[in-house]
C-alpha cells in the first residue's frame, strides 16, 4: 500500500505524466464530443425517416436506414473502427482523430436513431390527433406537440448513450491513438513508474468523474423537462 501511495504522489508530481494524462483525456473528450454530435444529427435524421408516414418516396430511404442500423448494431465497434482505419481511411497522413470521430459518430447514430425512434413512437396517438382535429399542419404538430414530449422520453436513454460512447472510445488505443486509456498504459509501462495499477487507477477516476458529471447534468435536464408532469400547480 505504501508503494501505491508513493507511486500516486510520484505520478501527480511528474509534469510529464500529468501532461500525458491530460493529453489522453483531451483526445477522449474530443472524439466522444464530436462523435456524439454526428450521432445526434444523423441519428435524428434516421429516426425521422423511420417514423415518417409510409409513401412511395419513403420506401428507399426507409430501407436504407433499416439496413444501416442493422449493420452497425450487428457488428462489433472494434471491427468498425478497424475497417475505418485500415480500409476506408487507409490514406497516408489522414488525421487519425477524424477517422475515429467518423467511426464512432456513424456507430452512435444507429443507436441514437433507435432511442429517438422509440421516443417519438412513445408519444400517445391522441396527442397527434388533438393537433390534427384543430387543423394544425404536420410540421406544427411535430414541433409543438410530438417533439417536446418525445425529447422528455429520450433524454434518459440519450444520457446512457453519451456514457457508452465516452467509455467505448477507449478502444482507439487499439489503433495506436493516445487517449486516456492509452496514456494510462503508456505511463505504467514507462521505466520510471514501473506500475500499471497507479496510472490505471487514476485513468479510471478520470472516466468516473466525467461520467458522474454527465449523469448529473442529464438528471438536471430531465427534471426540468418533467415540469409538465407535475400534478401540482406552478
Amino acid at each position: 500500500m505504501d508503494n501505491f501511495f508513493s507511486k500516486l504522489v510520484e505520478l501527480f508530481s511528474t509534469q510529464e505524466y500529468i501532461d500525458s494524462l491530460l493529453h489522453g483525456f483531451l483526445l477522449t473528450i474530443q472524439v466522444s464530443y464530436f462523435a456524439l454530435l454526428i450521432g445526434l444529427v444523423l441519428g435524428t435524421v434516421i429516426a425521422l425517416v423511420d417514423t415518417a408516414r409510409r409513401s412511395k418516396w419513403m420506401v428507399l430511404p426507409k430501407f436504407i436506414c433499416r439496413v444501416y442500423v442493422g449493420i452497425i448494431r450487428g457488428t462489433p465497434m472494434a471491427l468498425q473502427l478497424f475497417i475505418m482505419f485500415f480500409v476506408i481511411f487507409a490514406i497516408k497522413g489522414f488525421p487519425s482523430i477524424i477517422t475515429a470521430i467518423i467511426a464512432f459518430g456513424l456507430n452512435s447514430a444507429a443507436y441514437m436513431a433507435e432511442v429517438i425512434r422509440g421516443g417519438i413512437l412513445s408519444v400517445d396517438k391522441g396527442q397527434t390527433e388533438a393537433g390534427l382535429a384543430l387543423g394544425l399542419s404536420n410540421l406544427t404538430i411535430f414541433m409543438k406537440i410530438v417533439a417536446p414530449q418525445a425529447i422528455k422520453n429520450i433524454i434518459p436513454a440519450l444520457g446512457n448513450e453519451i456514457i457508452t460512447v465516452l467509455k467505448e472510445t477507449a478502444i482507439v488505443s487499439m489503433v495506436g491513438m493516445y487517449d486516456l486509456n492509452m496514456a494510462a498504459k503508456d505511463i505504467g509501462s514507462g521505466q520510471n513508474m514501473a506500475s500499471y495499477i497507479v496510472p490505471m487507477f487514476v485513468a479510471a477516476l478520470f472516466y468516473l468523474a466525467t461520467i458522474y458529471l454527465i449523469t448529473f447534468i442529464v438528471k438536471r435536464i430531465e427534471k426540468g423537462l418533467r415540469r409538465s408532469d407535475l400534478r401540482t400547480e406552478e
Binding site: G126, Q127, E129, A130, G131, L132, A133, L134, G135, K144, I145, P148, Q149, K152, S228, D229
Partner: peptide, 17 residues
C-alpha cells in the same frame, strides 16, 4: 377540420402545454 371541432373520449389535451 377548423370548421368541425372534435372532442375525444380521452380528452387529448396536449400534455406539454
Amino acid at each position: 377540420r377548423r370548421n368541425l371541432g372534435m372532442v375525444f373520449q380521452h380528452f387529448n389535451l396536449i400534455n406539454n402545454l
